[in-house]
Simulated assay, not measured.
Amino acid sequence: MVRAVAAAVVLQVWPLLAFLGGLLAVALAWFASSGDGVPAEMAWWFFKAAALGLAGSFALHEVAHVVVLKRLPHVTHIAIERTMWRTSVIPAGTMTALQSAGVAVAGPSSCVIVGAGLWSMGLDRALAWWYLVHLVFLLPFFGDGRNLVHGLREAVALRRARRTRE
């Protein structure tokens, strides 16, 4: 399932990756024949941003959801949903409110951890931003943010109901 999710994300952006891969091949051929490395550096920057930044960060995001979902005993199936603009995972089965909130946080937080690591080690700060920006998916107008808010509200409501019964 982890491979299938990662592959679905890559398939989502394959035309962009193919175009940029072709551009990189042409730029490398130009470098080999002319000695001018500037086009190759530019093409590599674009390809790296698309492959490692865009596709890599979203693949990690969705794979992290799957890893957490697979650990939940009452999740019976995980489906991959692809639309024109996104790839996401849809669980079947039951989860507690806190489990639902945890699944919502898993995707963005995994990316933020990788981004923070890239940033703090000074490896590639431009690439780090592709991962760090996943924090915005915890805002309530994105699916993960809605699931987080819903899960936390439900958990608080259940806790209040238990207190009033006692």
Rank of each mutant, 00 (worst) to 15 (best):
W30R: 00
A55I: 14
A79N: 09
L98C: 08
S100G: 13
R163I: 11
M121Y: 02
G21R: 01
V63A: 10
L23H: 09
T164E: 15
A92M: 07
I78T: 12
S120R: 14
V63E: 08
L69S: 08
L135F: 05
W129P: 03
L132Y: 08
A40S: 11
T83V: 08
V5W: 00
M1K: 13
W14Y: 12
A29P: 02
W44Q: 00
V114G: 06
S100W: 02
R3A: 14
A79P: 00
H150W: 13
R82N: 11
L28C: 08
R165P: 00
I80M: 07
R3P: 03
A101D: 07
I80Q: 08
V63Q: 08
A4T: 06
W30Q: 02
P140C: 09
R146P: 00
L16I: 12
W30E: 04
A104L: 04
V66G: 14
A50W: 07
N147I: 10
K48C: 02
S34L: 07
L28R: 13
A155S: 07
A106E: 12
R82K: 11
A7H: 09
A161D: 02
H65M: 00
V10N: 04
L158D: 07
G22V: 04
S34T: 15
I90T: 10
V89E: 11
D124N: 04
W130R: 08
A7D: 13
W45N: 15
G107Y: 05
F137H: 14
R159F: 15
V10R: 09
A55D: 02
W45H: 13
L24M: 13
A116G: 11
S88H: 10
L98M: 13
G22E: 09
M121H: 05
V63L: 06
V26R: 04
G107H: 04
S100F: 00
A51I: 10
M121P: 03
T96N: 07
L138K: 03
R160N: 12
H61A: 07
E81Y: 02
R3W: 14
G143S: 00
A8H: 06
G102I: 01
L17D: 11
H150N: 08
S33E: 12
R86G: 02
T164M: 05
E62P: 12
K70C: 11
L69R: 07
R159E: 14
V89P: 13
A161C: 01
E154K: 04
A51P: 01
F46H: 11
G93Q: 02
M1S: 13
S33P: 03
W30A: 03
T96Q: 06
V10M: 08
G21T: 01
Q12T: 07
A155F: 15
W119N: 03
R163F: 10
L132M: 08
S109R: 01
F46D: 13
F46E: 11
Q12K: 15
L98H: 11
P39K: 01
A50L: 08
L52I: 12
A29D: 10
S33W: 15
T164R: 06
R3T: 11
M121K: 12
H74I: 00
T87F: 06
A51V: 14
A25G: 12
F46V: 09
W30K: 00
L20H: 07
I90F: 10
T94V: 08
I113R: 01
V114R: 07
W14Q: 12
L52M: 12
A27C: 10
R125L: 09
A6D: 09
H134Y: 05
R163T: 10
R165S: 12
L72V: 01
S109L: 15
L98D: 04
